[in-house]
């Protein structure tokens, strides 16, 4: 009996000795993998999944043409050579209400310096949109009607409001998500305009 016990013990020691470096390798790999996964998840969970960089920035702007809320027509192609501020809005969107005065001011004050402001009224009803505009005593810029949201999709819109700045060459130079502010207009729009 004693002999058997010794034999087993020896065998075990041998196997353990040969497996030791391999075991350390496995453990190192496992720990490294765990660290990588933890870092990826820690960074990923801390990020806002709704903020995705638009691939349209620094690219030619998609086309935009169609009937406007005031009964006219708008075609972005007609404004080539001018700086255009394209704002996607809807009457059911509270931040759009907050930023509407900023757009009105941009249209009236920067219009003479060559700025074109145009809205895309998306996924809205004509009546609600009209009520919204009436609240502000009328709009100082046209808004292209986009009942089914397909124009918004063409512009890669995630939600409303979103605002695109198109330069004189027809390229989108900047995009902002959320309420448009005076500061943004001052910082990015004004420098593109004639003094």
């Amino acid at each position: 009996m004693t002999a058997t016990t010794d034999q087993v013990t020896d065998e075990r020691d041998d196997t353990a000795a040969s497996a030791r470096p391999l075991r350390w390798l496995w453990l190192t790999v496992a720990v490294a993998a765990a660290v990588v996964v933890t870092v990826v998840l820690a960074v990923g969970f801390g990020r806002d999944p709704s903020l995705v960089a638009s691939p349209l920035v620094d690219e030619p702007a998609p086309g935009l043409s169609g009937a406007t809320l005031d009964g006219g027509r708008f075609d972005l192609a007609d404004h080539h050579g001018r700086v255009v501020l394209v704002n996607v809005w809807a009457s059911w969107c509270p931040p759009c209400r907050d930023e509407f005065p900023v757009l009105q001011a941009a249209a009236t004050e920067l219009g003479p310096r060559g700025l074109v402001v145009v809205g895309i009224d998306t996924m809205d009803s004509d009546e609600a949109a009209q009520r919204f505009i009436d609240e502000f005593g009328g709009a100082d810029f046209p808004s292209v009607v986009d009942r089914d949201g397909s124009k918004a999709v063409e512009w890669g819109v995630f939600g409303v409001p979103e605002t695109f700045l198109v330069d004189r060459d027809g390229r989108i130079v900047r995009k902002t998500v959320g309420t448009l502010t005076d500061a943004w207009v001052t910082e990015y729009v004004e420098p593109l305009l004639a003094p």
Binding site: D48, S50, L51, C93, P94, D98, G159, V160, V177, G178
Partner: peptide, 14 residues
């Protein structure tokens, strides 16, 4: 769930 860190609440039909 809605992930609106910078975008104000109500942006989009989140």
């Amino acid at each position: 769930l809605t992930g609106t860190a910078n975008a104000p609440r109500g942006a989009g039909d989140a």
